[in-house]
Design a protein around this nucleic acid. Sequence first.
DNA 1: TGTACATCAGTGAACGCGCGTTCACTGATGTAC
DNA 2: TGTACATCAGTGAACGCGCGTTCACTGATGTAC
Lengths: 217, 217
Amino acid sequence: MHEIHSADSRPSHSAEAARKLGPHGRATRERLLTATRESLERRSLMDLSVAEIARVAGTSPATFYHYFKDVESAVLRLAQDIAGELPEAVDGNWTGGAGLERARALVNAFIAHWDRHRAVLLVRNLAADKGDPRFQLARRAALLPVMRRLASLVELAVAEGRVDSAIHPDVASASLVSVLERLSAHSHDLEQLDVTHDAIVETAARIVCQTLGEPTD
Amino acid sequence: MHEIHSADSRPSHSAEAARKLGPHGRATRERLLTATRESLERRSLMDLSVAEIARVAGTSPATFYHYFKDVESAVLRLAQDIAGELPEAVDGNWTGGAGLERARALVNAFIAHWDRHRAVLLVRNLAADKGDPRFQLARRAALLPVMRRLASLVELAVAEGRVDSAIHPDVASASLVSVLERLSAHSHDLEQLDVTHDAIVETAARIVCQTLGEPTD
DNA sequence: TGTACATCAGTGAACGCGCGTTCACTGATGTAC
DNA sequence: TGTACATCAGTGAACGCGCGTTCACTGATGTAC
């Protein structure tokens, strides 16, 4: 019998939250997250599993449970890590003719974002739409800066009479974000038809500007 | 040994496509589809299974394989059955001041459609976005009438100078559909905040009209 | 610089379970004569 | 109206497999003195 550990000193070892990680541990955790992302990209959500992830990461299922409670926790973490990447895309001055250029930048930021994180964003949105509050929160956190900014621009435009007062700022900004997300998600499909990248950007940018009551030239 | 069946007369029995169905068979098939839909609504996509569906339908897994090749085939069938439900929502005359009323009807049709088929539509869109061609086709078939009509209205508006020629008709119609789908998918969430159903409809309808170059009052 | 211990990291092996899938069969319903 | 057969519908039972999950353990790396 080994005596390295006394019965009392054995750590709870239950994975999940409160584990302190050294550099080696952080690396393994990162590998597991990468494996989760890859599985998400390659295979369908229906056959995503701890076993699969561990295989891709080149480790054992047991190791997975050191770092995550279950598969969904790992996916959630991926979604949360992404959240910070979209904030500054709406910063700056929108009014006085700068709107169209700002809108173009926003569209391009969304497309780039989706090209990088397509698979994760899709399941995040699915889980959120299905009603999982953790994923709803992750989605909200990611999009809130953009939504807020756009909503306040609409509000201003309504106040100044540039936009019909029947338009609700929050609904309008949600609509615009949905345009940005969908076109980003589908940009490759569209380009495979006869639509150029430029046509996507220009069209989306103009829809944004129109809805904000900004001039489009 | 039983002699009811000779070795030759035994049917291939391999389920799937070419099976001729009597009324009893059609009913069972329908029960399995309903069970699939319910499982999709209640549980996550990750633990949807033949066993689960058979349980909900009150039958055995073996029966399932009489009618469908696998779970995805059943889900696909659900998606295809839905496709015909949205067509006439864009019919009629849009120009000459009737646009706003037409747009309202369109928004309401989408919301009703999504309220009925939320779960199926979500996984259809996920599968399509992930690249599964069967679901892409199902999605396309469902939305094509709407997309086409909207695109031709944009085209007309561009030709008549009511809409900026930088706007691409197909991209614009895809954008509008994404607004309709997202607001429909989220209408309950929005209403749980301070947004009224009416605000959703009015805002969406105006975004549609603006993009079509129609007057909004 | 060495020794003792704590902490960090990782996994082999086992378990039981539920799933997918198929076979061989039964019973119920039609249909031809 | 009965008999013979074909077709339609359904399932019990079995199988093997892979998954989730945990335990008890090992080894590697830090740190106190």
